[in-house]
Design a binder for these strands. Structure first.
Lengths: 193, 193
DNA sequence: AATATCATGTAACATGTTACATGATTGG
DNA sequence: CCAATCATGTAACATGTTACATGATATT
């Protein structure tokens, strides 16, 4: 039961696409799933050992001395379907950015501007990475999985664009906060005629 | 140094708005910051004890027996500014939804549809909660903080709307995946005339 | 030969949740 | 008086990262 849930799903899922070593597993998760998921060696190796013990994966021929390529077994594929069917469990939210902005009064508008600008730049960088993924020529072996991957890429793109739109709005709001004027909105000029 | 970082920031930040008990602290974080942050009692009470030991907060008059209202001290306010100025550290991404969709091939289009529909409904629910926050009459004591809070609310709204837009797109894509037809797009009807 | 990368694994540490134990106050 | 809520705190557990130890293979 221990070492169960999410890591198990990620490892089995990746091996359902193609067999690979523990090291390659980490790389694959970082490169392709990296925007939505992460695993460290400290998780992957114990998870692989446990999955092997339970017969969900097996060591296939090793390419080099000391390295083993892991492949998913039939019962492993069944287990994966079971795991994927379980209700989505999300981690409690912990946005360092939002925490800082929430208490932004203590920081002042200028420091908040920097934070927002940083978030905007990050989002822009992510957009570029998603575009790169879209432009990659589809590999033969992963053709069946690709439509689903693009679903997640699309989610990332929507989120990134939303961040950029929000950032522009927030920057304007912070500017408003900074200048200590009475009238909140300029309104029509004619009103002073 | 232990028990430092993010929880300390959240607790000091909340107390910078107004003094309160540990219990109220948790409620405040849940209600107002809940969409972006979370803390449990198991974090809050040890953190308060540590902050008190270091002189960043003090116990003010208690309303009832056994309960203590905590207030931020001058050095606590300074410490908060220091903490807020530290670089944003974000938790590694772990989206259970994206993990499932990524391996959606194993689930099939129908199950994926359910997942996406669930995410869409969640986003809609969040939008309603944000609207409620906006409509709350601003309290006197929190007036100075409010503009910053609204910044985070706006971020939540943008994110939720992006989720809804993505979900609609994803549902359409899943529909396309399901029907096993040759032509990817129906095209103009006239072509068959 | 030296360096970079691939590869496996473990131990120590950091963080965070849940469940429990305990009791006060308030409202019906 | 009884239940719900307010309130504090701890211990056990779950999870996850980082740093380290170790060595093979490929590249220059």
């Amino acid at each position: 039961m221990a070492r169960a849930s999410q890591t198990e799903t990620a490892v089995l899922g990746a091996l359902s696409v193609m067999p690979m070593t523990g090291y390659a597993l980490r790389e694959a998760i970082r490169e392709v799933l990296g925007h939505f998921w992460s695993e460290s060696f400290g998780q992957i190796y114990p998870a692989l050992a446990e999955l092997e013990r339970r017969g969900y994966v097996r060591r296939a021929g090793s390419g080099r001395t000391g390295a083993s390529t892991f492949a998913i077994t039939a019962s492993g594929a069944a287990r994966l379907k079971e795991l994927l069917g379980e209700p989505v469990q999300q981690v409690p939210p912990r946005s360092g950015l939002m925490l800082r902005l929430f208490f932004g009064r203590q920081l002042g508008p200028q420091a908040c501007r920097s934070l927002v600008l940083g978030a905007r730049a990050d989002a822009q960088r992510r957009l570029a990475q998603f575009a790169a993924i879209r432009n990659e020529p589809p590999e033969e072996e992963t053709a069946e999985d690709r439509p689903y991957w693009l679903l997640t890429v699309s989610a990332g793109e929507h989120a990134a664009r939303a961040t950029i739109a929000w950032a522009d709005e927030a920057l304007a709001a912070l500017d408003e906060l900074e200048r200590p004027r009475q009238e909140p909105r300029p309104g029509k000029e004619r009103s002073t005629r």
